[in-house]
Structure formats: structure tokens, C-alpha cells
Design a protein around this nucleic acid. Sequence first.
DNA 1: CGCCGTGTTGACTATTCTCAACCCAGGTGG
DNA 2: CCACCTGGGTTGAGAATAGTCAACACGGCG
Lengths: 250, 250
Amino acid sequence: MEHPLVRKLSNFTRLSNDEKDALRNASGRIRLLAAREDLIKEDDPTEGVNLILEGFACRYKVLRDGRRQMLSYIVPGDMCDARVFVLKRMDHSISAFAPTRVVIYPREAILELTYEFPRIARAFWWNTLVEEATAREWIVNLGQRTAPERAAHLLCEVYYRLRAVDMASGGRFGLPVTQAELADTLGLSTVHVNRTLQTLRAEGLISQDGRDVIVHDLPGLEKRGLFDANYLHLRDEDLSPPDWREREPV
Amino acid sequence: MEHPLVRKLSNFTRLSNDEKDALRNASGRIRLLAAREDLIKEDDPTEGVNLILEGFACRYKVLRDGRRQMLSYIVPGDMCDARVFVLKRMDHSISAFAPTRVVIYPREAILELTYEFPRIARAFWWNTLVEEATAREWIVNLGQRTAPERAAHLLCEVYYRLRAVDMASGGRFGLPVTQAELADTLGLSTVHVNRTLQTLRAEGLISQDGRDVIVHDLPGLEKRGLFDANYLHLRDEDLSPPDWREREPV
DNA sequence: CGCCGTGTTGACTATTCTCAACCCAGGTGG
DNA sequence: CCACCTGGGTTGAGAATAGTCAACACGGCG
């Protein structure tokens, strides 16, 4: 299988073979996570950059009284904390939904890569900005959308993101997330998530087969969730021309 | 009055006089916004970096059907879009709650500043990370907290942030935001915001005097909102030692 | 003076939550 | 091989939270 980061970046920019090789060969420690295992916990010291190769994970935060809120989903090709190592300690946790393979690049490996291949550096920045835009979109989702809208929106997001790494074909994709976890994602109770999914199924927008979701009517689902894929910035044209440079922080 | 960015950064790092002067003298176009005027609208091409000198503003996004959600509040000393100019166009809008004075630095001015003063570059990075952490906290707020908790949490955040730029003394600060705007911030209806504020007042946590909020019991308010100021990373110790460098993107 | 924007209130409705029960499939141990 | 256990999905009923609509109060301002 193609390296998921190569696959993802190729969607929006043309990488040379050298660049592809550099991405594929960048060395880091591989870590295997079982389902429900934490990759990093809040307050842990920050390490290098984590790249998800396989699996499905999420960021989350828990309140003092135990309530938990997912902050984002992380799919293959996603880099965690491209810059979070500016801070000493994590202010949230990352956990795997499914068995997940991660490669942890030490800072130096990343710096070398971005130094040698400006286009890769650029792609990393793009990655960061998409992460931020996604966080904003989640704020909108939780603040303004009704339960079925929220669910529809989330499914659209996951679908588009998985498709970008070839993990959704024919409208079908794996979503290894329990309804309780979906509840903590959507800010709803488990019971309500259950009923909400039933509505979406009854509306003929999706169906479910075990942990697989099948999207029957993507435009319909997008409409239901007031979804607009723009925020994922999947096309290169969204980026400014590479005519600028920024100094590294110190 | 002290330059708000200098004031803010001085909270967490010791700036030399040269650095302070550099910040104060960095030149950019000044823009005055009336209350309710947009600084940037969604789809506008990105400009340089905007720094709020005076006033109060917010980011927001509106859905196709008109629902609006605030994404973050922006107070003096805050920089908008420290890196958003990587993207061609804004994917959200920024608007002033109150009359607001902003200075728009062209990219070059920022690059020069960060080039010449590594500690300023570092501070800019810190600023970015706090912005991201705040977005995550808003996700938690909307997803998990009840109405009074949400309101209490928001008030704590605003209070801490304003205090960092000397705009809240004795627990009192100006919040030039209507209840309708608060509603779009907290994901509630206007009526419910009204009643929620009444509860917080009845609980003796705050009182209001026109557009001023007076915090009577900060620990109590923090507890009510399950607020923990950590995410604002107000202390320098939160940052990794400056022993690393990152390549500039291209 | 009268208008408008904002805050407030009451009555009613809708959405979402809680609790408790039940079902089913898969895995385990006897 | 089967009884049991567990985790996850599903259902119903009732309660709590939040939304809607409509009215009114109040102050600033033309």
C-alpha cells in the first residue's frame, strides 16, 4: 500500500520522486497501538511529530468530572502536533479507536525533511492550517447544528478525509467508533446518537454494516449536514503561491 | 498606554528594550473599525497580519441558512492570522464588537521582526499555539458544558485574557457584546442566554453594569464553568526551551 | 415625541437527556 | 459444546434543558 502521507499530499500537490522517497524513507520509531490505547496523555511531555500510518485515532479532553469531548479525528496520513512541541506538555490526549500504526519522527528528522524539500515544508504548513480550519468547523458544528445535522456533517468530513487517502471507495468506509464515542464527539448522549443515526438511515442517506458506513446519497448527506468541503482545502489552488518565507521560531 | 502586544508578551517572557521598541515601531497601516464592522470577510484574499490595538472583535462563520457561530474572541494584543496567509482566501470572517483599532502589518514587516528578534518569533509561535488551544477549549465548551457552565467558562476566559493586557481591574471588565451575540458564541438562544446570565447573577458569581461585567467570586466562577486557565498558557514555563529550530516553509 | 435596539418575561413547544430494560454477537471458561 | 458474560446497540417512558413566539420595558437618539 502506498505511504498514506505521500498519498494524501499527492492529492493537492505534485511531488517529485525524490520527495516521495524522502517521505517514505524518513526514519522514525514505529509504534503499534491497540484499540482504545492512548498515544499521548494530557500533561505528557511532548515528543516529536507523530504520523498515523494505519488505523484511526482522535484527540480528546476530559473534564474534572469525567465528561469527555473529542477534539478531532485523526486518520492515516495525518500528522499530530506538527508544532506542538513548542509547548512542553500536552494539553489534551490522543487515543486510538482502532489498532493503529504510528511513526514517531524525532524533531531533527522533520527539520531535515523540511529543510531539504521546501515543497514538503509547504505541505506541512497546509496540514496545520487544515487542522485549524477543522477545529473551527467543529465549533460551528457543536454550536449551531442540530443532532442529525451534526452527525451528517461528521460523516461527510470523515468520508472526504478517508477518500483522500484511498480508504473510502464506493461510498463505503470503516468507522471504528462506538456510539458512545460518537456521543462524546457530537456532544450528545449515546441514546440520542443511536436515534439520530436511525433518522439518517431512515432518510436513505446512509446505511450501516457493522462498523462500516455506506453513503447512499452524498449530496443529500452534505445538504443535511450543511456541509461544505471547502474547509478541508483539498485543492492546491487554495494555497498562496510559494513566494513567501517565514523565519523559523527560536 | 502601553502597546498591548508588548504588554501581553511581557507577561510571559522578558523582552529587552530593543525588542519592545521593535514591536512598538513596527510599521503597518492603521485601520479603524466601527462597532459591527467587518475587518475581513469570508472569501476575502488574505492580507498581512492584523494586530488588535484597541477594541474587541471576534471571528465567526455563518451557515447557508444564516445561523452564525463565533469562533473566538479577539482582544487587544491578539494577532489575527499569524499564518493564515498561507491560504489564499479567508474561510471565516472577523468583525468588531466595539470600535476597534487594528494595525495591519505587511508580511515583510513580520518576517523582518521575527528574523531579527528570535524571542519575538518564539512569542508569535506561542500566540499561535494558544489560539489553537483556545479553539479546542471552545469545542469542549460547546460539546460538554451546560448553559450556565458555558457562560461561566467564557467569562473566565475573557477575564483572564483582558487582565493580561491590563483591561480588567478589580474583577471588572467591559464586554461590548449583546446577548444575541453571546447566544451565537455559546450556541444558545438569546432568551436562554438572558436567563443563564440571571442564574449566574443570582448565584452571586457576577453582576452586570451596562456592558461591564463584575466578577465577584472568581474561584466560584471558575468552578461553575469547570474552567482551568492552563490552556491559555500564560506562563513562560509552558514553553519548551528555545533549543530547537524549525525551517521556514516555502 | 416616537422609534429602534436591547434586555426581560411568560407560556408553550421541541429537543435532548436519563434511566432502565432488553437484545444480540462474540469470546471465555467449565 | 454450551452456559455465561460482556460490550455495544436499541427501545420506551418520563424529566430536564433549551428553543420559539409574542409581548413589554427601558434608554438613547433623531
